[in-house]
């Protein structure tokens, strides 16, 4: 029980930082690169992502175009311009589309879990802390959402609200609120029984203070780890909807939509589908590796083994 002090969280984090290893830093570097690309997507000297060059449809990587192409930030570039990653079926630059597609994927992948984490986390902590009828109500409500098969619920919401990011992100968030709620509740239940909570109560701390200063700092890490694991799921789900043509409307590039477009020319020009597929795979794998690592470090069930 000696370790039952709020301060142990801090110590644990420092001790573990040293042994994160290769499988943590490599994916972290890839995601930082993607974040950088997402922020700087407009600054690169690339053709506009929706410019169709009909003299080079589905061109293989490293194709040189002798024409002037409209640049994405006004003006013309090229003559010659090299399509380093080739073009898609409509003669659009795959490199430019991939870089702009990062925005959609990261926006959906990060925002949906963030929203769900705040909503689900709050409800879960309150349910785990106050227990009683409120908790039963929350559990029942979350079970009902979980009763729907995910993609079908997503399709139904998409059908109801129409396509577009502003509808897609809340729909995805609703889908994963129960998961965050469960993690938050389960963690709160175990932390709320610890001695330092009793100690805090003994020195006269109120419920709000205990939740904010003692429960929240401990629950937030498992929640974050879980969130990272869901980023990959969200990117795949957005890709699935865009693949079906129900996600981000054209001409905004999205990896899923790019893969779907490449499906038609898989035989003659496999790179049109396989390049975005590879980028999506590496990205999802990176988030999964990060999340898995973070989960190992924060999972309550692992505590007893490691200490």
């Amino acid at each position: 029980m000696a370790e039952a002090l709020a301060g142990t969280v801090e110590i644990r984090r420092h001790r573990n930082a040293a042994k994160l290893g290769f499988s943590f830093w490599l994916p972290a570097a890839w995601i930082c690169l993607l974040l950088l690309l997402a922020c700087s997507a407009d600054l690169w000297t690339l053709p506009a992502y929706d410019h169709m060059n009909f003299s080079h449809p589905a061109a293989p990587p490293v194709t040189r175009s002798e024409q002037w192409l409209p640049s994405q930030n006004g003006g013309l570039i090229g003559s010659p311009y090299t399509y380093w990653l080739g073009t898609d079926t409509l003669g659009r630059d795959i490199a430019a589309r991939l870089i702009h597609g990062v925005r959609v994927s990261l926006l959906v992948g990060l925002l949906a879990p963030a929203i769900a984490c705040i909503i689900g986390g709050t409800i879960g902590i309150l349910a785990g802390f106050y227990r009683g009828r409120f908790e039963s109500l929350v559990v029942a409500a979350m079970d009902t959402i979980l009763a729907f098969p995910g993609l079908v619920l997503l399709l139904a919401i998409g059908f109801y609200l129409g396509p577009g990011l502003q509808n897609l992100i809340p729909a995805l968030a609703i889908l994963i609120v129960p998961a965050f709620c469960r993690v938050a509740r389960a963690n709160t239940l175990t932390w709320a029984e610890r001695d330092f909570i009793l100690a805090a109560r003994a020195i006269g701390a109120g419920n709000r203070r205990i939740i904010c200063c003692h429960i929240l700092p401990n629950v937030v890490w498992p929640l974050a780890a879980y969130g990272l694991l869901l980023v990959g799921v969200m990117i795949v789900a957005e890709g699935a909807l865009s693949f079906l043509g129900l996600g981000v409307p054209a001409p905004t590039p999205s990896w899923g939509g790019m893969i779907a477009a490449g499906k038609e020319v898989l035989d003659e020009a496999p790179h049109v589908a396989l390049l975005p597929a590879a980028v999506m795979f590496i990205t999802v794998l990176s988030f999964n590796l990060l999340g898995d690592r973070l989960r190992e470090l924060t999972d309550i069930r692992n505590r007893s083994n490691t200490e």
Partner: peptide, 22 residues
């Protein structure tokens, strides 16, 4: 197993079509 879980089913489908059908 960990790596395959990062492959979306639609990508897996395209890979299989590419390899076995085309």
């Amino acid at each position: 197993g960990f790596a395959t879980l990062s492959i979306p089913s639609y990508v897996m489908a395209l890979l299989l079509i590419f390899a076995f059908a085309l």
